[in-house]
Design a protein around this nucleic acid. Sequence first.
RNA 1: GGACGAGUGGGUGAGUGGCUGAAACCACAUCCCUGCUAAGGAUGCGUACUGGUAACGGUACCGAGAGUUCGAAUCUCUCCUCGUCCA
Length: 416
Amino acid sequence: MIDLKLVQKDFDTISKKLQRKGVSSELLEELRLKNEELKKAKSNFETLQALQNSMSKEFGVYKREGKDISELKARVDANKLVITEALDIQRQKQEALESLAMAIPNIPDDSVPDGEDEEDNIELVKVLTPKKFTFTPKEHWELAENNGWIDFERGVKLATSRFSASFGMGARLERALINFMLDFNRSRGFEEVSVPQLVNRQALEGTGQLPKFEDDLYKMEGMELFLIPTAEVPVTNLFQDEILSVDALPKKMTAYTSCFRKEAGAAGRDTRGMIRQHQFHKVELVTIAHPDESEKIFDEMVSCASDILTALELPHRLVNLCTGDLGFGAAYTTDIEVWLPGQNTYREISSISNTREFQARRAKIRFKDGKKNRFVHTLNGSSLAVGRTLVAIMENYQHEDGSIDIPEVLKPYLGM
RNA sequence: GGACGAGUGGGUGAGUGGCUGAAACCACAUCCCUGCUAAGGAUGCGUACUGGUAACGGUACCGAGAGUUCGAAUCUCUCCUCGUCCA
């Protein structure tokens, strides 16, 4: 959540920065106004309440001393009516402010380039050179079906479109990739955690998926539980509403989970193959960091994900997301795009973000800095999306006859 | 699914309507004293918002939410979690 104090104190700067994310200064002005109204309503209520409290205390004294209370009671009763009304107003203001504030995105870092969409993202670096094929490389769905690795039709039969089933080496490769990624992340100092894949509303509000993006989440019928769209949600919220000690930081974690997304608004995009599925495997990195360290850890997380691709000998590039492509909660994001020769293009395989205090403020994750409690910084990133990695392996390791080599680093995981 | 019990500050735990933001003990921090198989003493020690340059105030929080009352950790209701017993 946005820092309301900052809005109050330095409106123009914040407004200018948020305009780059499409937040109008009118909306922000409304936020500031609502905040002031709430403050007023609050102080009004509290003054009345203080009066009530002190009269009530007197009440006790009167009773003990056996004094007549009828006059006092009349005063106290009258005040109570006023209080009830004041409280009502305060609640309304509170609600109005909150629903507005929760829908405002994070302030983009100054390093984030202006832009509309992914076209305007800025390439930072390319890693490994795509190899030249002597034939026209096939797209992954063809390879997957020819090798009997992935069955798209049977997946649809079981659920609906954008679901698939894996068989044989396809399924084994998925598992090998998950294990390889987890082990790799662990070697970089990320502790492995295993978390629920259903979470409540509070958790999703903490990381920013709610209240704005409910349409993209699968919700359990009849209860306030949602399938997670990313492990970022449960892992980050592990420390929700906690005050950590400084020496507990940073908490560097990695988790494998399935992820579930409705992909509302993605109709018609990537309908074939397993680039955009409703359910997919992902290994995630999450760090709860001291604010002074978050930049450094961000770089570590980017390297970690990039180095996994390098270990798999998959060409990729790093991209700095522009304002239009930047997510709701991120201050800045680096995407990693892997080379897909079948599609003859780079496609996103990882997205690493620093949300700074944005999520911490929502989820109330703090640490003790001497006497003071401060918000931590939270970071998250995929390392990596398993399905897309499999796609990249298929397309990059293919031969003309449609057979596919296995990356060296995965062989031990496959008993080879 | 049914019955009963419980949820209090970092931990243990007292508190059944006003003198309780909360005893006591432990832990922790600072200071003092002192040396012997270690301890003793003093003080401090929750969070959020808010007023004030500050000193120092105000409001809220005893699982969550709602209610009764002038006043609630304490009474009522709903929910959640944990424990024990039953199915």
